[in-house]
Design a protein around this nucleic acid. Structure first.
Lengths: 254, 254
DNA sequence: CGGTTGCTTGAATATATTCAAAGTTAGTGG
DNA sequence: CCACTAACTTTGAATATATTCAAGCAACCG
C-alpha cells in the first residue's frame, strides 16, 4: 500500500541557519549566536522527500533527527491487517525522530503528503547538544511536551467525540497549527490530502467521514474542495469541537 | 463528580534518594553520585494524595513536578458536559507535570486511585537540572518520549481497534507496565479501579465494556474480579491486542 | 479516450450505546 | 449480627451511530 522509497538526498552543508526562512518567522524563538553556531554544525544535510515517500519507517533504525523546513506529512502506525492510525499531521517546524531517543528503532512511520524539505541532525550528537546547550536541550523537551499535549487532545476527541465533533476538532486543529506555521489565514488553508487520511486520523470509515464533511458544508460551517478548506463559521466550529487549540508563540525550532 | 481535595503534605526533606526503594529496583538506571546529590537537593517534599483526590487539576497552575513513588492514579481530560477521557494510568516511576514545562498551566488532571506517595520537585529549578546535569536532562526527555510512545499505541488501539481488541490491549498494556514496576507477576496483578475507568480509557460505554470483559472471561483468556486480574492466555491476549508492549530496562527515574 | 483515483450516495448490516432493572458486594450504623 | 445504603457489576431489550457493500460520478492523466 505505502511503498517505502528512499528519499532524494541533497548535499547542502552550506546551511545558513541564521537566515533560515522558517526561523525568521515571528512565531519562533530567537536563538543566541552560540546556539545558532551549534545548530549549523549539528545539521549534516538537507534532504528532500517526495510526496508519497516514507522518510521514516516503523521498525527501521534511524541515526538521524529531522526538522521539517517545508511541506506536509503525517505520522502513523499500522496493524498487520492493513488498518492504520494517523497519529498526527506533520508541518514545518516539527521535529521528527525524537520519539525513540535512546534506542534508534522507530515505533511509527512518517509519510510525505507533499514534497518535504528536512534538516538532518545526527542522533549521536544529541548528547553534545544536551551537554553544551541546555537551552536547546530544554527546547527539545518543550517540543516533546507539545507533541504529548497534541496527542492528549487527539485522544480526547477520538475517544469521546461523535463523528461531527471529531471532524470539527480536526479541521480546527489543522487550521490553528497551519496558522502558527504561516500556512493559513482569513479562514482559508490548503489541505494536501484526501478524505481517507481524515478517516484514518479520526478512526472513522471513509463513507462516514464523507457524510459528516458534507453535513458541515450543508451547515455552511466549513467547505473543503479541490484541496482547499474554507471555514465560514469559526465560532460554530469551536463550539462543536469544544476546544480551540490556539498555538503558543514563540515556540522553539531546532 | 471528581471533587478536588488538597493533598496531605508531609514534610520529608530527609530524603535518602540513594536508598529509595523504587530506585533500588533493577528496572531503573543507576545514577552517578553527583546526580543523586542533585536529585536529593532538587526534591523539596514528599506528599501523600489520598484515593479519590486530584493532586493535579486541568487549568490550574503548578510550580512542581512529581515523581510517583507508590500508588496508582490516572491522567485525564474532561469535556464541559462531563464526558472524560482517561489518557493513561499512572504507576510508580512516572514523572508528572512535565507536560507543560514552560507555562505552568496544566492541560490535564491527575486523580489518585489509591493512596499515592509523590516526590515534589520545584519546576523553577528544572533549568539548573538541564544546565548542570545533561544526563538527567536526557532522562527527562527520555521519559517524555516514552510517554509519547504510549500515547501513540493508545491512539492506535482506540482509533482502529474493536472493543474486544481495545480491552485486550489495555489489559496487556497494564500488565506489562505493572511488571516493569514490580507490581505484577505469574499472570496476576491488582487493578485498583472500576469498569467505568476502563470504559473512559478506551472510549467505550460502561455496558459494552462489561459485556466485552465477560466475553474475555468466558473465553478463559483473562478474569477480573475483586480488584484482581488473572491472565490465563497471555499468548491469546497478545494475539487479540496485536501488540505486546514489553517495557525496556533500565529506564530513568527522577 | 480508457484508466485511475477520489468523492458521493443509498441501502443493508453490524457494532456499540442508551435505557431499564436486578443482582452483588462492601461499608455503616443500629 | 442484621438492616440499610451506596457503589459497582451484570443482563436484556430498544435504539442509534457508524460500517460495509455497491454503484455512479467527476476530475485528472497518460
Amino acid at each position: 500500500m505505502n511503498r517505502i522509497v528512499p528519499s532524494d538526498r541533497v548535499a547542502a552543508r552550506n546551511a545558513r541557519c541564521e537566515a533560515c526562512p522558517l526561523r525568521c518567522m515571528p512565531a519562533f524563538r530567537k536563538l543566541s549566536h552560540a546556539e545558532i553556531d551549534f545548530v549549523r554544525a549539528f545539521k549534516v544535510a538537507e534532504i528532500t522527500a517526495g510526496a508519497g515517500t516514507t522518510p521514516l519507517a516503523e521498525g527501521s533504525e534511524t541515526d538521524y533527527l529531522y526538522t521539517v523546513l517545508s511541506g506536509w506529512g503525517f505520522r502513523y502506525k499500522s496493524l498487520p491487517d492493513g488498518r492504520r492510525q494517523i497519529l498526527n499531521f506533520v508541518m514545518p517546524g516539527d521535529l521528527l525522530g525524537l520519539q525513540s531517543s535512546l534506542t534508534s528503532e522507530m515505533h511509527h512511520s512518517v509519510e510525505a503528503l507533499t514534497k518535504m524539505t528536512l534538516c538532518v541532525f545526527p542522533r549521536d550528537r544529541l548528547w553534545a547538544l544536551f551537554r553544551d546547550h541546555p537551552g536547546l536541550a530544554l527546547d527539545v523537551t518543550w517540543l516533546a511536551a507539545r507533541q504529548e499535549r497534541m496527542l492528549d487532545e487527539n485522544l480526547l476527541a477520538i475517544g469521546q467525540g461523535s463523528a461531527h465533533e471529531r471532524i470539527a476538532y480536526l479541521l480546527l486543529h489543522l487550521y490553528r497549527r497551519a496558522e502558527g506555521a504561516g500556512l493559513a489565514g482569513e479562514g482559508e488553508m490548503e489541505l494536501p490530502f484526501t478524505q481517507q487520511h481524515v478517516a484514518d486520523a479520526l478512526g472513522l470509515s471513509l463513507v462516514h467521514t464523507n457524510k459528516t464533511l458534507r453535513r458541515l458544508a450543508s451547515e455552511n460551517i466549513a467547505r473543503w474542495s479541490s484541496g482547499r478548506l474554507r471555514i465560514n463559521g469559526l465560532e460554530r466550529l469551536v463550539a462543536i469541537a469544544k476546544n480551540d487549540p490556539v498555538p503558543v508563540a514563540p515556540r522553539p525550532l531546532l
